[in-house]
Structures are given as C-alpha cells and as structure tokens.
Design a protein around this nucleic acid. Sequence first.
RNA 1: GUGGGUGUAGCUCAAUUGGUUAGAGCACUGGGUUGUGGCCCCAGAGGCUGCCGGUUCAAGUCCGGUCACUCACCCCA
Length: 420
Amino acid sequence: MEPIQAVKGMNDILPDEIEWWRKVETVAREVLESFGYREIRTPVVEKTELFSRGIGESTDIVEKEMYTFPDGHNKWLTLRPEATASVVRSFIQNNLQANPLARKLYAIGPMFRRERPQKGRYRQFHQIDAEVFGVEDPMLDAEVMFMLRLFLERLGLTGVVLHVSSLGCKECRASYRDSLRSFLEAKVESLCPDCRRRLNVNPLRTFDCKVGGCKEAIQGAPILLDAICPACADHFQRLREHLKELGVEYMVDPRLVRGLDYYTRTTFEVITDRLGAQNAVGGGGRYDGLVKELGGPEVSGIGFAIGMERLILLLQQEQGLAARTPDLYVATIGEAARGKGFLLAQQLRSIGLETEIDYENASLKSRMRRADKLGAKLVVILGDDEVSRGEAQIRDMAEKTQESLPIASVAERVRTILGK
RNA sequence: GUGGGUGUAGCUCAAUUGGUUAGAGCACUGGGUUGUGGCCCCAGAGGCUGCCGGUUCAAGUCCGGUCACUCACCCCA
C-alpha cells in the first residue's frame, strides 16, 4: 500500500520541536494577559465574503491564495487566511463593544494560504494575533509595539528590527495614490508588466518591486509618509514620542507597505535578516475603517500578528532545541522486581513525577544506558535482592551517588531530592 | 503561477571516466564474565539508490517523464 503523505505545505509539529511551541504560547499568554488582553477562539472556517470584504478584493490573498469551497446550498466558505477579519466579525456579532473587558483580544491558531511553500512560508501556518478596539490615541499604538518587543525579549530573540510607518487615513491615502499614479504614468514605459498592472490596482505596491527599471522609475516618487494629512501626521508624531518615552527602538520605514487593504495610519513590522526571503516575523497596524466596513459600529482598531513558524525557526537557530527529560527511570532486575517496579512506577506517576519504565526485560547495563540517554535525573534500581528485603536503591545520575531505602519511602525521598 | 537546486540507511554524507556483494559517521540493539550510565572496544540490525520508462553487455551514476522536498520570484506572518 502507498503511504499517504501530508498535504503540501502543511507540516507536522513533531515531539522534538513541540517544546518551543509550548514555550512561545505560554510566554505569549503571560505577556498579552498582563496587558489586559483576553483570549478568543473563532472558527477556522468563515463565509468567504468576510475575507473578500475585509481584506480587500484586489489583494493577493483574496485573489489567489484562499482555500475556498462550496458548502452546498450556494454557500461559499473559506479557511481563514488571517485572524483579524474573524475577530472583528465576532466583535460585531457578539456586541463585544458593550463588554469593557473585551476591548483587547488575542487569538492563537492556524491560518491557511495556498502559496508555494518555502522557508518560513507554509500553507498552514500559525499566528499569535492581538486586536484592540475603540482606542484612537497613538499611546495605544506605542503600547502595542512595546508589548510586542517585550514578548520577543522574554523569548530571548535577538537580531530583529522594528520598522514603523504611517499609511495615512482613507482620504489622504486616496489623494496620495492619485499623485503617485500620475507620477508613474509618466514613466510607464520603463515599468515591468506587473507594475503596469499595479498602477491601476494599487500603485503603492511598485515600491516593493525588485525589477531594475521599476526601482529607478520609483526614484524621486512622492513618499506617502510626506503626503499624509495634518491629523495623520500628528498621530504619527505622537506615536514616535511615545515610543521614545517607552524606550522602544525602531526605524521609520516610509516604504513599509502592507498587503491588506484595511490598514490605516500606523503600520509596523518586525523584520529579521535570518530567514531568507521571508523577513517579517510579525506585523500589524491600525484599521480604523474595518469594523464599519464589516457592518459594525464606527470603532477604530489596531492589531498585529506574529508568525509562529518563523519565530520558532529563529529561536531554534539561536538557541537550539529544548528537550524534555524525565524525573526518574525505574530499572528492575528479575521477575519479582519487574512486577514491583511496574506498580512503583504507576504510584510515582500518580503523584506527578515524570517516570519512565521499560516493559521488557533487559540487562541492568542496558537499562542504565537508556536512563542516561533519556536524561533521567534519578534511577530507582529494583532487583529481586532488594525486593526480598523490601528495599530499593536510588541513584543520582549526575552525582553518581546511590542509597538504599525501604520501597515504601521511595516516593517521599524522590520528592525531597528533586524538590518537588 | 514562474524559475533554479536536490532526491542513496532513521539523520549527515561517500561510491574512480557507467563496471563485482552500494559504504562511513551519528543514532539504534546486544555484548565486553555475578546487578550499574556517559568514554572506549566488539558484534548486530537497518537500503527495490523517490517512482516509471529509455540508452547500454552493464545504470546509484547517462537521458526523458513523474512525484517529493527545497530555495528564489511573487506575496506575506
């Protein structure tokens, strides 16, 4: 029979790497909750319309990357490609605005985009996502970035840079788009086919183009950050002051363009140079019009997402794999001892000690080797000799010391040694 | 969607211009005289060389196809 393989771009997270995932999730929860965020879990599947309306019809995500399928009865469903739209939908549907404790939300889980996989980019990937509703003051924007940095620091991640910019509001972006378009139209013959198409759809994207001719053409183009309206400029200025107060290091990156249509004003990205082409570990920004666009009240919003695979890739590169080792290993010699050891192991586990035992008979030497490989801190040695005396031996593997004691007091003694 | 690279043991890699029984290290299992780990020594197990076809007396090696993985474009977390 042919073995069945996992779907392309959808990976198993194996036991050897799971410790990082748990650590990242734990630290994320601690940090987010200390800032007042509460967890929300939304379905992985939503109506397709939620994303086409929320993210934007002309975005790559909606145009060609979504897993969309019919659900019979003329309904189209989509595997969520990002978290914000779902959280916003839930915020509106459940009228969370009325709940003062539900202004700050976070979600952790898988997202799906049908892209060609490569390093740091997978078809199923996981995000830690945070959203805040109803606060317009840039103080919050700064706090969000402060929190993001704190989170990465807690994990010991180095070598990442925070890029910050402002996309302006709906109005000033529209007028900027027009002026950029007319600037580029004058040079249309030196643009690549992709960029000619972008000219109409979203001229801001030409800034991302790596083609030589486009890079030159874009030189001297008006910069969005210089063209934003006074209110947006003020917002950005105050954000920068708050970041300074908080001691958050960042660089202004006027070319930071986010690929989702809903972003307004503040945008930011955490960039690394150690993941090849996929350099964004996390990113986000304000989306002041989105809630209304999705049928809710006129409420502002800001949020960000962290790519867990990318983050963990970096952490593994820097800090290696974290291993989990048992507290103790029960090694028995002989039949009588085997039964006794089996019972003892269950008893030790019942009081919360991570205990390893083997189910087949083997030499003590091979048992000791195995205990060592597993990294057991203690080994309980139980031979027929000990059993006949009602005793057991406890060996401390690191100290190479060994003591005899009654079987009945093994559990208590192990606890004392391990301090548990 | 478009390019490039790579597929040999669980992992990392070998295998003269195509030429005998496809090797090594790590990992795994057992052993090195009574029941004690790491180092060392010995032994063992483990492969339809991704798959299909072609060229040839002969293919892991050359050619075509296919699948998988991977990197990049693109896009983004």
